[in-house]
Amino acid sequence: MTYTSDEKHFELTVNGSKHQVKDSFLGASLLSVLRDHIGMTGSKGACEEGECGSCSVLLDGNLVCSCLVLAASVTQSSIVTIEGLGGATDVQQAFVECGAIQCGFCSPGLVMAATNLLDRNPDPDVDDVREALAGNLCRCTGYGRILDAVQVAVDGRKRNKL
């Protein structure tokens, strides 16, 4: 049976909690609703067209650009943002320790993408990492330390399994 949802007032499930969204504008993206209505500014916008990956979130477990999701259309979905990782995860720690962060604007998106990769593939080779992170632009680091950080996180998980 078809149900309809209201485009301006709706409820989103973000990081396990329900959030009421009021007076969203027509066609608002999930990114803008997260940032401007729910007050979660961890997801960043640098292109608004899915090219930079800074706004990456998990939508029902899948990594997407939240700028390309119509917010009012995902009321039935589970959304996980950078704030929902809980903080101080192995991937985040590796990013900090390996020098993968400079200005940090791309970092939340990259952390989401790297985390998602490791959940899908616990033992990626360097090309797997590149392919998984190719949608996340970084303008500061030249990516070398980011690759390093992902490898450190991979190694850490392997060690913990032994």
Binding site: E7, L26, G27, S29, E48, E49, G50, C67, L68, V69, L70, A72, S73
Partner: peptide, 21 residues
């Protein structure tokens, strides 16, 4: 939404209140 939302975000596509998505 990978194409449609780009238009919305940039204002080149505008939704009106009588649109049904």
């Amino acid at each position: 939404g990978t194409d449609f939302m780009v238009g919305l975000n940039h204002g080149s596509t505008r939704l009106e209140s009588d649109h049904l998505i």
